[in-house]
């Protein structure tokens, strides 16, 4: 399967059930938005720091989680300083950082496989109208299709380079979409051929 963002460990956070972690995250985020106060930011900061310590994560994991949002956070900080004041700017940016770090705490301590198992376990208790087997099939199929679409993309790109069309993205995407759609149609047939309906 694809590698996920999991960091190996055996802490309390690693062992907690995915659903519990997600619910805790939802409560945490709601709390941060509901109580617009520095004291809440401070408490949340302590909680996130404690979480990182318990899970045995290092500062660079936190930095890596924040990096993708870095420039937009800088922009928002600048806008806030300009339109409001430094205090509000710092408050907003701290809140973002805490939200992202708290979320990464869940992501870094849970494998994608555990989440998929969690989803499947959750589906078992779902009411009858939920198409459980279809949802499970769709998740597996996506994981199966990702490497396949990538290889088709590479193959078609090579063919188009050979024809001097490498800068024409339409010429690249049309064959990729048509080929993978045909592929999907035959896969649907193969699934039906194996008595799934």
């Amino acid at each position: 399967m694809l590698s996920d963002l999991y960091v190996f460990g055996d802490s309390l956070l690693h062992r907690a059930r995915p659903l519990i972690k997600i619910l805790a995250l939802v409560v945490f985020c709601t709390g941060l938005f509901l109580f617009d106060h520095w004291a809440v930011i401070a408490i949340a900061g302590l909680m996130v720091a404690a979480g990182f310590a318990v899970a045995g994560l290092r500062p660079h994991h936190g930095v890596a989680a924040l990096r993708p949002a870095f420039w937009i956070l800088v922009a928002i900080f600048a806008v806030q300083v300009w339109l409001a004041d430094l205090a509000l700017a710092t408050f907003i940016i701290s809140r973002f950082a805490l939200l992202i770090l708290a979320a990464s705490l869940v992501t870094l301590t849970t494998t994608a496989g555990e989440f998929v198992d969690g989803i499947e376990a959750g589906l078992k208790h779902a009411p009858g109208w939920v198409p459980k087997t279809r949802i499970a099939l769709a998740i597996s199929l996506t994981l199966r299709f990702i490497p396949l679409v990538r290889s088709v993309l590479i193959e078609v790109r090579q063919a188009q380079v050979a024809r001097g069309l490498e800068r024409n993205i339409t010429a690249l995407l049309v064959p990729v979409v048509v080929r993978t759609l045909k592929h999907a149609d035959e896969t649907a047939q193969a699934i039906q051929a194996r008595s799934f309906d």
């Binding site: 399967m1 994981l143 199966r144 592929h183 035959e186 896969t187 047939q189 193969a190």
Partner: peptide, 16 residues
């Protein structure tokens, strides 16, 4: 009746 297709990539449904 079982069916084997030309391209096994189209037939294999699961990642493992």
């Amino acid at each position: 009746v079982g069916f084997v297709f030309q391209n096994p990539d189209n037939q294999i449904v699961y990642p493992i």
